[in-house]
Nucleic acid binder design. Structure first.
Length: 427
RNA sequence: GGAGAGGUGGCCGAGUGGUCGAAGGCGCUCCCCUGCUAAGGGAGUAAGGGGUUUAUAGCCCCUUCGAGGGUUCGAAUCCCUCCCUCUCCGCCA
């Protein structure tokens, strides 16, 4: 949510800023609605003030043993007027609120302009895409050869966009997760284990609702809950409604969770393999920061995620998302894209965003300002460190060998019982 | 699931229809005292919103005692619904 004061005082500048991300904001219409709101609110509040005053007078008269009947008669007409004024105000307030909750975040000044992902700016590359002296297989073929990936059986059990991992591949997946969590904990993150099911309020707080409900799996019964699309939702909402003492900042959390996404609207995309699943696992980094710290936190999170890929010996590039590609809640986002030999291209494996006070305002997440003692909105940041499913894909593809085996990066060997290669198993 | 208790400010905790945004305590801030430390004395200290305004200063006003309805001139206090927490029982990983 954007600062309502900014929307009121300078809707035109908001419209200009949001246009950079291809969002059309009707500043004039909003301003007109605001004018109405102001008039209605002033009227409702002055009626309320009058009634409060009169009621107080009745109280005093009664305490003094006076006859209060005439005083009560004098208030008689006020109630109906007040109710009507309140109802009118509420109608307008709802309209304003609907508009506000649908507005995406203001982009940072540094965010690149652009219409779509083709306009994202490549910041840097790390590592060389590996060369192979045999014909590379994609991760599906590699996984099948290892008897480690089985989409068909998962489809029987559930449906499309699910996978069964087994044997060495399942263990590799688990190793990736354990390694990543341990690494981030070693660099100062606090490991948290959080609910994978959340209520709508939490999803509103991080910005998935009300606009993006179609992307979510919803549990209608026995409660109106949702499966999380990312750990960002439960972890960020840990500070919802809280006032955090400044000396605790930044809060740095790492969480491993499954993520559930309906993938509405992506039918036909990445249908083969594990790139785009309804269920995948992710190690997520969350920072809850003082506004002065948030840029530094953003950089540090990016570095943390990068070092995972470096440890895994995977070539990647860092991309600065442009206005046409950046997410609803983010002011600035860096993606990590890992090299996939089968596709001869870089694919997203991590997305690291600073939402500034956008989510904090929706969640009511604040810190106490050391100087003024007043509560101020926090900044929240989230980033994958990294997506486990896609990391598995990247390792299978980049470390595959001609004989169908897959090399285990040194960083993962302690988590793989010391083995340095996954061999095809006989069923 | 059954029975009971409870949800009040940063925290703890009083408060069963009016003068209560709310006693008291803790914490915090400032001042005084004490040659350090500890203790002591005094003052202050909720949040959100609107109007006015160059202003997140001041002033005026509204709202908020788990959430939402209701009764009433007036609700933290009474009634209804829901949510959450705790205790005991049941069940269960």
């Amino acid at each position: 949510m954007l600062d309502p004061r900014l929307l009121r005082n300078d809707p035109q500048s908001v419209a200009v800023a949001l246009a950079r991300r291809g969002f059309e904001f009707d500043a004039a219409g909003y301003a007109a609605l605001e004018e109405k709101r102001k008039a209605l609110q002033t009227r409702a509040e002055s009626l309320q003030a009058e009634r409060n005053q009169r009621s107080k007078a009745i109280g005093k008269a009664k305490a003094a043993g006076e006859d209060i009947e005439p005083l009560k008669e004098a208030v008689a007409g006020l109630g109906a007027q007040l109710d009507q004024a309140k109802a009118e105000l509420e109608t307008i307030a709802e309209q304003l609120n609907d508009i506000q909750s649908g507005l995406p975040n203001l982009p940072d000044a540094d965010m690149p302009d652009g219409a779509d992902e083709d306009d994202n700016v490549v910041v840097r590359h790390w590592g060389e895409p590996p060369s192979f002296d045999f014909e590379v297989a994609d991760h599906v073929a590699v996984g099948e050869k290892l008897h480690g990936l089985d989409a068909a059986t998962a489809a029987k059990i559930t449906g499309a966009r699910f996978t069964i991992m087994q044997g060495g591949v399942a263990r590799l997946h688990r190793a990736l997760i354990a390694y990543m969590i341990d690494k981030h904990v070693a660099s100062g993150y606090t490991e948290v284990n959080v609910p994978y099911i959340v209520n709508s309020k939490s999803l509103y707080g991080t910005g998935q609702l009300p606009k993006f409900g179609d992307d979510l799996f919803r549990l209608a019964e026995p409660d109106d809950y949702y499966l999380i699309p990312t750990a960002e939702v439960p972890v960020s909402n840990m500070v919802a409604g809280e006032i955090v003492e400044p000396e605790r900042l930044p809060l740095r959390y790492v969480a491993h969770t499954p993520c559930f996404r309906a993938e509405a609207g992506s039918a036909g995309r990445d249908v083969r393999g594990m790139i785009r699943q309804h269920q995948f696992e992710k190690v997520e980094l969350i920072n809850i920061a003082h506004p002065d710290q948030s840029d530094a936190c953003h950089e540090a999170m990016l570095a943390s995620a990068e070092s995972v890929l470096q440890d895994l010996e995977l070539a990647y590039r860092v991309v600065d998302l442009c206005g046409g590609d950046i997410g609803f809640s983010a002011a600035r986002t860096f993606d990590l894209e890992v090299w996939l030999p089968s596709q001869q291209t870089y694919r997203e494996i991590s997305s690291i965003s600073n939402t500034r006070d956008f989510q904090a305002r929706r969640m009511g997440a604040r810190y106490r300002d050391a100087e003024t003692g007043k509560p101020r909105l926090l900044h929240t940041l989230n980033g994958s460190g990294v997506a486990a499913g896609r990391a598995l894909v990247a390792v299978l593809e980049n470390h595959q060998r001609a004989d169908g085996s897959v090399g285990v990066p040194a960083a993962l060997r302690p988590y793989m019982g010391g083995i340095d290669v996954i061999e095809p198993t006989v069923e």
